[in-house]
């Protein structure tokens, strides 16, 4: 009986996932006429990747990370600079950016996790890292500086990752999303995943049960930073330039908000939140124009506050509740606890 139920649970997710994946594959073909819609889709998927990987450090390990912009920026500058200066393909630049992002992540993660400093200092120093990198890159004229650095134009080059359409970028981003989801899903049923969840709930109790908190959190942070750096590398090619404004506090905030609103520790939650909130943001931007730019931030934060107050488990959990309730109504099965 017990086994039957777990088997069902295991199967039901991949079915839904496969259907969604097929929809994701077809979407750009439906929207192929409009470059605007394509970049919107790519942006939604990109936030999905970032929020999904945020789930590892934020949702599972309980570290409120606000440095998504830092890792993204580092990845963008690494891969962009390699491409502009030495004509090195982003296919190498992306993992290189990931590694550099890991380096910075360890720089702030190591001392904080070593001294068991309260989570809040981690949140702060990660937020500060973004601002500092932005300033540092503004001042570092050789690589950054206040003007955009453009990536050489190529009409359609796989080596340079330059295309005259957004469709290839969409699919590459989708691959990153699948990787991020897979890592999340895989982690959630492995030792590290259980350890991270335990740490997020209660650090003292977890350590007493043999969990090396510092090592586990560092591993989680490194995975997250690496994915962030990879996305950054792609981001530079997507927009065709690099600029210190990529180190964005606002973007970091958005990623964290998506992670919380989507549901901490739930693999598909952050993606769901990204799909809803980022599309809403772009819709607002398109329909209200520049003068109401910040309205979306107001709505984001309002949704965040409401979710935290009334459903701290997030949208993912809400959806799961509705799903099991529907199951109950239609199949007369007992709702899952």
């Amino acid at each position: 009986m017990q086994n039957l139920q777990t088997m069902k649970q295991k199967r039901s997710i991949p079915y839904t996932a496969i259907v969604l994946f097929i929809i994701a594959l077809v979407l750009p073909i439906l929207f192929r006429r409009s470059q605007y819609n394509l970049i919107l889709l790519t942006t939604v998927v990109m936030y999905g990747v970032l929020a999904t990987s945020w789930n590892i450090i934020g949702g599972m390990a309980g570290q409120f990370d606000l440095a998504a912009g830092a890792y993204l920026g580092l990845g963008a500058f690494t891969s962009g600079t390699l491409l502009i200066r030495w004509d090195i393909t982003p296919w190498l630049g992306m993992p290189a950016g990931g590694l550099i992002a890991i380096g910075f992540a360890v720089l702030i993660g190591y001392p904080l996790f070593r001294f068991r400093v309260r989570e809040v200092w981690y949140a702060l120093s990660s937020a500060a890292l973004v601002s500092v990198l932005r300033v540092a890159f503004l001042m570092w004229e050789e690589v950054g500086g206040p003007t955009e650095r453009y990536i050489p134009y190529h009409d359609w080059s796989f080596y340079h990752l330059r295309f005259s359409s957004y469709i290839p970028f969409y699919y590459i981003m989708l691959i990153l999303l699948v990787i991020a989801l897979f890592i999340n899903h895989w982690l959630s049923r492995r030792k590290l995943g259980y350890y991270l969840l335990a740490l997020g709930d209660n650090e003292d109790a977890a350590e007493i049960l043999g969990v090396n908190a510092q090592a586990c959190k560092l591993k989680a942070l490194m995975i997250y930073a690496f994915i962030g750096g990879m996305v950054g590398g792609l981001y530079a090619c997507l927009y065709g330039f690099i600029h210190p404004k990529f180190f964005s506090n606002t973007m970091s905030l958005e990623v964290a908000i998506l992670g919380i609103v989507g549901g901490m520790g739930i693999t598909y939650g952050p993606l769901l939140a990204a799909a809803i909130l980022v599309s809403m943001r772009e819709f607002l931007r398109a329909s209200l124009g520049g003068q109401m730019q910040s309205l979306y931030l107001g709505i984001y934060s309002f949704v965040l506050i409401i979710i935290v107050l009334f459903k701290p488990q997030g949208l993912g959990a809400l959806l799961r509740d509705i799903y099991s309730r529907l199951n109950y109504i239609f199949r007369k099965e007992s709702p899952k606890p």
């Binding site: 335990a198 709930d201 209660n202 003292d204 109790a205 007493i208 049960l209 090396n212 908190a213």
Partner: peptide, 24 residues
């Protein structure tokens, strides 16, 4: 010594005020 190392050596404990993993 760090708590997790002590646990590896074979000592464990419970808490006065239960420290549970609420979301698990």
């Amino acid at each position: 010594e760090k708590p997790y190392k002590i646990c590896k050596l074979g000592m464990s404990r419970t808490f006065q005020v239960t420290q549970s993993f609420i979301s698990m």
